[in-house]
Design a protein around this nucleic acid. Structure first.
Lengths: 136, 136
DNA sequence: GTTAGTAATAACCTTTTAGTTAGCAGACAT
DNA sequence: ATGTCTGCTAACTAAAAGGTTATTACTAAC
């Protein structure tokens, strides 16, 4: 791998890969068709299985069940079983899920900007692209 | 949809959906198995098709070709054809692609933190999760 | 004239992801 | 006793994503 287009200190491929994997992990956690919607439904206060399913238009029980399991394994959601009354089960976001806030926020900010750009269909100005190289 | 767990001003479902779509767009752009790797390879200065393919371990010509087209359509990449010598074609990131920097940075930051957490396998403290609700 | 490098593309196959349908077991309401 | 609500789950199907192989057409070197 060559880093010849730039004369400042360059990251090594190993450092680059580390960052790539980290970003990949983050994408895995919030990616997919339903993850973000489920997180949002939970953030909105929906707690019970059927309640969550009703809140998310189009999701099947199978997928919701699988995704909740994944979220639980990754520490974003806790599953609380209440045996007292007609066995109700409540899902809740953990404090750890809050650490995703800056990530989600930046996705929203960029996405809104991108939508506006598409609406205006304006051409980007011609200057060099270097900022991405700086953070890697 | 109910917003009964919180007594401050709550976003409407419409506002929520707008943000969700925006985040979804952003995820689409950098999601998938190869997008981020291709963007990084380009940021590293790889310009030509086979050069990029060699830089990204395991990607097939078909997938690279499709992804480059997508990236071009979305305004992240320009395709320059040089007819002079053995027809070479160069791909370059546009200045617009730089707008992704904050997003990618926050993904990396979170991903690194998450990896450390998994390594330490430490339990999260018990307190309420509310920050996510704030940004939606 | 055969091999290698240039940048793809078509046809096809496999894997991954998601959707559909049906069912279960407990408890409550009519 | 029949229906309905609860929270799932298994089996199957469909769609999307990705991988493999072969082929195109041109040049240049051996």
């Amino acid at each position: 791998m060559a880093f010849t287009h730039h004369n400042g200190p360059r990251p090594t491929p190993v450092q680059c890969n580390h960052k790539l994997n980290a970003a990949g992990d983050a994408l895995y956690v919030i990616g997919g068709k339903w993850r973000l919607r489920i997180i949002i439904a939970l953030a909105e206060g929906h707690r019970r299985f059927n309640d969550i399913q009703r809140a998310i238009h189009g999701i099947s029980a199978r997928v919701l069940s699988n995704e909740l399991k994944e979220l639980e394994i990754n520490g974003f959601v806790t599953r609380n079983v209440y045996t007292d009354f007609p066995v109700s089960i409540e899902y809740e976001l953990t404090p750890y899920s809050d650490t995703l806030s800056p990530v989600i926020e930046s996705l929203i900010t960029w996405g809104e900007m991108h939508r506006e750009r598409i609406m205006r269909a304006e051409k980007p100005e011609e200057k060099e692209a270097t900022a991405l190289a700086e953070i890697l």
